[in-house]
Write a protein that binds this DNA or RNA. Structure first.
Lengths: 118, 118
DNA sequence: TTAGTCGGTATACTCTAGGAAACCAGTATA
DNA sequence: TATACTGGTTTCCTAGAGTATACCGACTAA
């Protein structure tokens, strides 16, 4: 999302924001949460299956985001020696842990929509 | 953050993402979480105090983001008839509710840093 | 009268996340 | 031979988020 999320001048407050920045860096952007959500739902998916499921994402973005999620240990990538080759992406237990946050976002989003809409 | 966060093709999964999108729209961007964090910490702050506390933010961005947070009922704005005029921004109970998510992000960010760093 | 505070606006710019479309190698089927 | 599927990569481009800087009116204290 953001390269540098500013800190508060106040040290306590500043430390808090540093950690929040880390979380946003891992989960931020347009496609990470959709990817994690889909993978959390199906547990494993192939590249093309993800692309079909996540409407609107381009191969470029999917490839890029999966790499970063892999680097952050939220998903694993396994090449299967079939013909044609298939690549299995699987959510890790750690990846599941992030869905706790996504669940929070979901609950809050639902409540917010109700509150603001009426 | 993002104007349109895509949905999953799968309906269950898609509904979930719509609500998540709402939450991200309200809390996203570079400055909203810092503002809520600072306001959650101090409860009330004046415009200039916020600008001082949130290092790096410009008056334009602060003004713009406060307006949107006010529109979403996360903060209130009160003009006080002093000389010179002072404007008090205060976090609402509803604004506090969003800090539950921020807390989640914080906890996860701390754990993530520990996991990935070593 | 000049400089300073407050809470902002207005204008013009930069920069980068993301999008569109073409292309790639390897294998298989018609 | 050509077309299609797999899982991508490369290039070019744009919209919009965020930045920099100057400015505003109302007031006051020196």
């Amino acid at each position: 999302m953001d390269k540098k999320l500013s800190a508060c001048a106040n040290p306590d407050c500043g430390k808090q924001l540093l950690a929040v920045r880390d979380a946003i860096e891992v989960l931020g952007g347009k496609w990470r949460i959709p990817i994690i959500t889909v993978l959390g739902y199906y547990k494993t998916r192939r590249f093309k299956e993800l692309q079909t499921e996540i409407t609107g994402i381009t191969a470029k973005m999917l490839s890029k985001e999966l790499k970063e999620l892999e680097a952050n240990q939220l998903v694993t990538r396994t090449v299967q020696d079939t013909r044609p080759i298939t690549v299995i992406y699987e959510i890790t237990p750690y990846g599941y842990s992030s869905s706790k946050i996504i669940r929070e976002l979901y609950d809050w989003g639902v409540a917010h929509r109700e509150k603001v809409m009426k």
